[in-house]
Design a protein around this nucleic acid. Structure first.
Length: 438
RNA sequence: GGAGCUAUGGCACAAUCUGGUACUGCAGCGGACUCGAAAUCCGUCGAGCCGUCGUAUGGCGGUGUGCGGGUUCAAAUCCCGCUAGCUCCUCCA
């Protein structure tokens, strides 16, 4: 949620910055017009309420003196009716303001490139493992050899991913991991959680069903209800990301300033309807209705949030560096950023079979946008309440990481070498080879 | 799933039956006493949110007794709905 006072006092600037996020100028004008009428109505009704309070006190006093107060009571009946009417108007106006404000995306930080979509994103840096370790594997950055296969074929050939039975038992975009596949997934997220724990993140296991208030708090609702798996008949939703329960952990609370920054990490399944993505990435682990993700969330003071954004991005990159898989980092443009974000870095992992980088992590500073929706505050040096800044980032999407491992570590004979850092998590196993599971 | 009880400031509680400025203690803050502290005494003490005025510490008004409605001139109090916690029963990894 944006600060209505900021929008009011800086309407011209806000119009421009909202336009960068794809919001029409007319929307802000409607919002401000409603806000103007809301404030006028409040002024009017509060005058009457002050009058009523005063007369009610006099009535109470008269009654104690056993005096007649019926004339004052009769007067207040009229005033009461008027108050009721104005309060109803006020509620309507407030809902109108809220209805628009709740749909406004966050404003972009100054350094974010302005543009309509991903074409305006700006690459920040590329990374690839050094020669020594990389030379043992296919030269995926120097032209793919003939035998290079996409991860889903590798997985199916090895018998460790079963998309057909996933579709049979659940539906499209669901799958089974089997045997070494399941074990690899587990190794990957255990490795990720251990790395983040070393960086000072507190490990959490969260509810994976949350209420509507929580979904509103992080910005999924009301605008993106259609992409959510809702619990039939209940006001609850299967989380699309652990960002929701992690960030809402402190909703409505004042965090002691000395505890900031606070860092959480959690593994959770994530559920997405993928409305509007029909026909895209229909094969493989890239776009599923249910996938595992290790998430990072931070609560910070405003002045430290951008430093913490860089650190969180580095934490995501660290995973791929230790896995020795190439990636690059891009800064998203105003047109490509998520609803709540003020600034976002995407980490995209190299997928040699498709010859592209694919998003594997998205790290955002939402500044006070979510904190305002959730009412998360701290007390500054002057003992005044201030909104915290919240950040979130994938660290990383687990399924996509498995996909990247399969493609980047595949061998000509169809086997897959297990990255060195994962071997301790797999009982020392070094290679995934086709073996019967049952 | 069934039944009962509970929800009031940072904490502990009173007022609820019988509607009329939300009591008191602890903690906090300011002061007195003291070389200083403790004890004692005096004063002060509703966080947040909304509106408005002011350059500003802030003033004024509204709201605020778990949440949402209703009745009333007036609701902590009466009525309806909900949520959470506790106890008992039932069930369960």
């Amino acid at each position: 949620m944006l600060d209505i006072r900021y929008l009011r006092k800086n309407a011209d600037e806000a119009r421009t910055r909202l336009a960068d996020r794809g919001v029409e100028a007319e929307t802000l004008d409607r919002l401000l017009a409603l806000d103007q009428r809301r404030r006028e109505t409040i002024a009017e009704v509060e005058t009457l309420k002050a009058q009523r309070n005063e007369v009610s006190d006099r009535i109470a006093f008269a009654k104690r003196q056993k005096e007649d107060a019926s004339q004052a009571i009769a007067e207040m009946q009229t005033v009461g009716a008027k108050i009721k009417e104005l309060d109803a108007q006020r509620t309507t106006l407030e809902q109108g303001v809220e209805g628009i404000a709740a749909h406004l995306p966050n404003l972009a930080a100054k350094e974010v490139p302005v543009g309509p979509d991903e074409s305006a994103n700006v690459e920040q840096r590329r990374w690839q493992p050094d020669e020594a370790s990389y030379s043992k594997r296919p030269q995926v950055l120097q032209g793919a050899p003939e035998w290079l296969k996409p991860h889903f074929e590798i997985g199916e050939n090895l018998g460790i991913l079963d998309f057909e039975r996933g579709a049979k038992v659940s539906g499209a975009r669901f799958l089974y991991y089997i045997g070494d596949g399941a074990r690899l997934e587990r190794a990957v997220y255990n490795f990720m959680l251990d790395e983040h724990r070393k960086e000072g993140y507190t490990e959490m296991i969260t509810p994976i069903v949350v209420n509507n208030t929580a979904m509103f708090g992080t910005g999924q609702y009301p605008k993106f209800v259609d992409d959510a798996y809702r619990v039939e008949g209940l006001e609850q939703t299967y989380i699309p990301t652990a960002e929701v329960p992690l960030t809402n952990y402190f909703s409505g609370e004042t965090i002691p300033a000395e505890d900031l920054p606070i860092k959480f990490t959690a593994l959770s399944p994530s559920f997405r309807k993928e409305a509007g993505a029909a026909g895209r990435d229909t094969r493989g682990l890239i776009r599923l209705h249910q996938f595992n993700k290790v998430e990072m969330v931070k609560f910070t003071k405003p002045e430290q949030s951008y430093d913490e954004l860089e650190k969180m991005t580095a934490n995501a990159e660290n995973i791929l560096q230790k896995l020795e898989i190439p990636y690059h980092v891009i800064m998203l443009s105003t047109g490509d950023m998520g609803f709540s974000a003020a600034k976002t870095y995407d980490v995209e992992v190299w997928m040699p079979a498709q010859n592209v980088y694919r998003e594997i992590s998205s790290v955002s500073n939402t500044e006070d946008f979510q904190a305002r929706r959730m009412h998360i505050t701290y007390r500054d040096e002057q003992d005044k309440l201030q909104l915290v800044h919240t950040l979130n980032g994938s660290g990383l999407a687990v399924g996509r990481t498995v996909a990247a491992i399969l493609e980047n570590y595949q061998n000509e004979d169809g086997s897959v070498t297990i990255p060195t850092v994962l071997r301790p998590y797999m009982g020392g196993q070094e290679v995934l080879a086709a073996t019967p599971h049952f």
